[in-house]
Every structure is written in C-alpha cells, then in structure tokens.
Design a protein around this nucleic acid. Structure first.
Lengths: 250, 250
DNA sequence: CGAATAGTTGAGGTGGCTCAAATTTTGTGG
DNA sequence: CCACAAAATTTGAGCCACCTCAACTATTCG
C-alpha cells in the first residue's frame, strides 16, 4: 500500500495513525492480468478500488467502436473516480499490465473520513487533481506532435512522482493512440518523428525519452496542473506492507 | 442566491438552516459586464466565487493565441473550481453576458463545512460533476456535427436544470467554436447544416433547438454524466434573496 | 513453432483549416 | 434617432494534417 500512503501524504497533512487505520481497511486483490477490466461500466458498487501495482487506463468505447482512453492510472490512484461520492459509472478501467488493487467498502470510507477529516480532505484533493488532468487533456486541439509530446511529459512526471525513475514509458503505441485520439498509423509516424528529432531513443523498441528539455519544449508542457510540487521523491512514507513498485513491461 | 441553493439541494440532503447560514456568508458583486474576467489566471486568492446571474466560461489561451473554452458556467456554479481545496489557478473565467457573483472567504467555507458535513459533501459532489463534464468533453475526437450537437444538448440540459426553459442557447457561434475547438468558419457551416436538418430554427439568428429528439440522436447524447437525475425543476428552494434568473442575451 | 500482438510503410481520401472578403447585427456617442 | 465602429455571421477557394485501407515485418507468448 506504499503507493496510496505516499500519495495521501502529498495531498494533506495526515497523521501516520490515520493512514494506518485507513490502509488496514483495504483488502488486496493480486494478479489481475493485462487486458482484464478492473472496473466494468454500468454496475454501481458498494466499494472503491485503488490501484496498487501495475498500470491501468480509464476508458470508454465510443461511437465508432473505438476505445478512447481518458486517463492512465498509476499505483495509488483511485480506479473508480471516488465512486463513494458520486456513483456514476460511465467509464471502465482496464489493466494495461499485470495489476494489484486494493478494495475498500464505501461505508468504511465514510466512517473513517468522518473520524479523520484531514483524510477526507486528502481524498477530495485527489479528485480535484484528477479533474485537472481531464481539463488539461481537453485543451486537445493541439497538433499531433505537440499532443503526443505533452502526453509523454505527463506520464514521465507521474512515473517519477511514484518513485519510478528512468525515462522509459511502459505503454504501447496502440495505447497512446487510443489516449491521444489519433490513429495508430499516425501515432507511429509521429513517434518516428520524435525519434528523428532526437527526443526519443532510436534503437529501442520501447518509448524512451533521451532529451527531456526538448520534449518539454515541443509539448509546451507546464506540469503545474498535476499539483505535485510537494515531496521531492525521497523521504517516502514507511508505513507497513511489502515492497511494491510499478512493473515495467515491454 | 437562489441558483446556489437550488444546486446544493440537488447534491445532498442539506438542511435549510445550513443553507441559510452558508448563503449568509457571501457578499454579492453585481453588474460585471460582458467580456470582463471574473477570475484571472495565476493569482491564487483567499476567497471563492460563485456565479449568481448570467453566463460565463472557463477558458485558457493556448499556444497559437487562441481561446480554448473548457466549460460554460451557469448560475450556481463555482467559478474557480473550488479553489479552497486546491489553489491551482491555471484557467481564467470570463463573463459571456452581464453577470453577478457571490464571494466567500475560504476560511468561511472551512468553518461551515466543518460544522455541517453534509454541506461539505454537497460541495465535493459538485467538484465531481465538474470533473464528469471535463471527462465527457474529452471524448472529443467526434466529428464536428456530433461534437457540436453534443455541446448543444449539454447546454440545454444545464439551462433546464437551473430553471431556464425554452430551447434557445444564449451563446455566439464564436463562443461555441472556441469551446468545441473548431474554427468559427466550420462552426458556422455546421450550424447551417443543423438548420438544414431541421434541428435548429432557420429564420432566427439565435441558436434555437426545434427538434430535440433529432439533436440527441445526432449527438448520441446520454446526459447521465451531468448527474441531474434529481429535482424535476419545480419545487425549487424558497430561501431568501431577490428574484434572479439567467439573462438571455442576443 | 504457430498465433496473436505490436510496429512499420505506402497510397489515396477528406474533414476541418486558413485566408480573404462581404454582409448583417449590435452597440455607442452625438 | 442616426451614423459609425465593432462584433457576429456568412460565403468562396485552396490546402494539409490526419484518416482509412491494405499490406508486410518484427516481436511476444502459449
């Protein structure tokens, strides 16, 4: 549960005992395999799900039968968009790599946030940051190169925020295309452009950033919308549970 | 303050006395004229702003110098995206018609939500619905006709939710273009297409829906993301203050 | 080792853009 | 109430970013 604890600490001043109590309410579900839906559309539920390991995406099937990815999710993220507040389930969540999740009953969340308001505040803030990300993606209408570069920047920053250093992005071109709303063909060609520009590694099959500054420049990326100013990645929480980390596929 | 009261009542079970106390904390600022910024970018503040009358938009100037509208705001909406929770100010808000707003100190919000948790819950829900709207817009990549139809559907539903009946949308084509991320030229041509299709009135300069069902069909609109299932528009709150209503320009 | 899945390349089509100008409507000051 | 400026709407013409369709080639995985 490291990921969740780390995140909540960033969001508000929360006492260790509060975090411990919160974490204790979760039950863990492991080994969700790539391609499986973590959350399915339509059925409202009595519990919330937090991603603990792996990488997932929130998505929706749109008119033409295509998958539109709305956001990527990293360890510590609430998969179901805080369904305990608003039970709307108009999107699904899919595991892009093997995943583990934590599950907590809505009524347990209610109980503990009533008891520890600062925990509720942290959760609220989390919903706001999610909203920021959606807002930022909206400023779509960017040309493909900039759009993709921007998406890559966001993923790098979010990976760093959960302690995954290294500039390799564990997503396929298909995933990125579905997220950017571009065809895979055009995604591929633009990735190649970025490789030509020296921004991504050329030899590797994986998507690896080799020139961060230039990427940021192309993307006109200003990461403040991610609200990750705090916590410079070191002094991470040391509350309970076994070692975790995002698993880098490909 | 009708608009705000009505909205909060929809979002949670809040006692009248709680609403009264909340409303009493606002000070009102009237006669903000069309074109003026209600919220400017960059400067974080110590208070929050609620739109009471008129129509505003949250926007951002993007790379090419163009205005990207992220969402429209109606009476009762928090202009600054609940800045008391997350002080990020990466967007501005502009009055699209003459507006009135209410202003409340962050610390007053803190005080009263601590005292009345159900009020805090209502506010939290409100942030979630805002996020839903951003999410829905993201599923951009729709062809222009569908995209615009969808936007119109949303505005009609939101207008109805605040008690403005009638199917006339008080926005210019320029505003709609900036929101849809389309050129005004293409917006104009698509509006004309909708007129040809009998969905919008032909003679009027204003944008008036004449065939709702067909519009919904074109848009593939499913309004559930707006979370307005409650309150069938009649029995509106009767708490204090003078008559208000959105002013329909054009 | 065969079957998916992911990545790459080519060719041709089109939705929405830009530039440019005309027309209509709205707002303002006299 | 009129005249003029500013804003909104409309129309035409040419262009290009990104799409679709259709292979073919690596890779991964059971």
């Amino acid at each position: 549960m490291h990921a969740l604890v780390r995140k909540l600490r960033n969001l508000a001043t929360v006492q260790d005992e509060e975090l411990q109590a919160f974490v204790a309410m979760f039950s863990v579900k492991r080994s969700i395999r790539r391609g499986a839906d973590i959350i399915t559309m339509g059925n409202s539920s009595t519990f919330s799900t937090v991603l603990l390991q792996g990488l997932a995406c929130r998505y929706k099937i749109i008119g033409n039968g295509r998958r539109q990815i709305l956001t990527f999710q990293y360890p510590g993220d609430f998969c179901d968009g805080h369904s305990y507040i608003l039970p709307t389930r108009d999107t699904a969540v899919n595991a892009l790599t093997e995943c583990s999740v934590g599950v907590i009953l809505h009524k347990d969340i209610e109980r503990i946030t009533a008891k520890f308001p600062s925990l509720g505040l942290a959760l609220w803030r989390d919903t706001m940051i999610e909203a920021s990300i959606f807002r930022e993606w909206n400023v779509g209408q960017r040309p493909a190169l900039e759009r993709i570069a921007h998406m890559l920047c966001e993923q790098i920053v979010r990976l760093e925020a959960i302690g995954v250093a290294g500039s390799s992005i564990p997503l396929t071109q298909v995933d990125l295309a579905d997220a950017a709303g571009l065809s895979t063909v055009h995604m591929n060609r633009t990735i190649q452009d970025l490789r030509e520009l020296g921004v991504l590694l050329k030899n590797s099959r994986a998507i690896t950033v080799s020139h961060w500054e230039r990427l940021v420049e192309i993307a006109k990326f200003d990461g403040r919308y991610l609200n990750m100013w705090q916590v410079p990645s070191d002094e991470l929480a040391t509350v309970s549970t076994r070692g975790e980390g995002i698993c880098l596929p490909m």
